[in-house]
């Protein structure tokens, strides 16, 4: 059987019985001894070196992410603030522009009004002047017309009736006509 063949060099050296190896008590002491050494060593290396390092790495990353998030939050708040300030400045500027336009319009309107008033006054003065001149010219013309009519009447009376009348009488008659 294969069991006989299984007795290799090492097996022979061990001097063990043909017992099923996992249940062979003669190997227990050695296995326990080396397991304790190995596991103690492994535990020591894990708990003192590898795991603290990993904990540190993970914690560091956690912290880094947290601070980065906080920083992002802060920057976002700053941006919001800047946007609000910008909008306020914009509104102020708009209002100022509006008020400037309004005052300008008002002053311009007032100037136009004043100029219009002056021009109107000027025009009415000129009109009155012209009216006066027209009246005087008319009066003079009327006077001239009366004297011409009187002279014509004198001449006409002399020629027609052969009566010599004075200019004064003629003028009275013209005025009465």
């Amino acid at each position: 059987m294969a069991t006989e063949a299984a007795h290799g060099v090492g097996e022979a050296a061990h001097g063990a019985s043909a017992a099923f190896p996992p249940f062979d008590p003669s190997t227990f002491a050695s296995q326990i001894f080396w397991l304790v050494i190995s596991f103690a060593l492994f535990y020591y290396l894990m708990s003192k070196v590898a795991l603290p390092r990993l904990a540190q790495i993970l914690e560091g990353r956690q912290d880094r992410i947290a601070t980065d998030l906080a920083e992002a939050e802060r920057l976002k708040a700053e941006t919001d603030e800047a946007i609000a300030a910008y909008e306020q400045a914009l509104a102020e500027a708009r209002e100022r522009a509006g008020s400037i336009a309004r005052t300008t319009r008002e002053t311009v309107n007032a100037e136009i009004e004043a100029e219009r008033h002056a021009a109107e006054k000027d025009l009415s003065a000129k009109l009155a002047d012209a009216d006066g001149r027209i009246a005087s010219i008319r009066d003079k013309a009327m006077a001239d017309v009366s004297s011409v009519a009187a002279e014509a009447a004198v001449a006409a009376v002399q020629a027609v009736a052969g009566i010599k009348i004075t200019k004064g009488e003629a003028e009275k008659a013209v005025a009465a006509a």
Binding site: H14, P22, S30
Partner: peptide, 18 residues
């Protein structure tokens, strides 16, 4: 020997220590 399924579980002394 290679066919013995138990052979892989044998414990072989490499450095004797008593």
């Amino acid at each position: 020997m290679s066919n013995d399924p138990i052979h892989q579980f044998h414990i072989n002394r490499l450095v004797p220590l008593e």
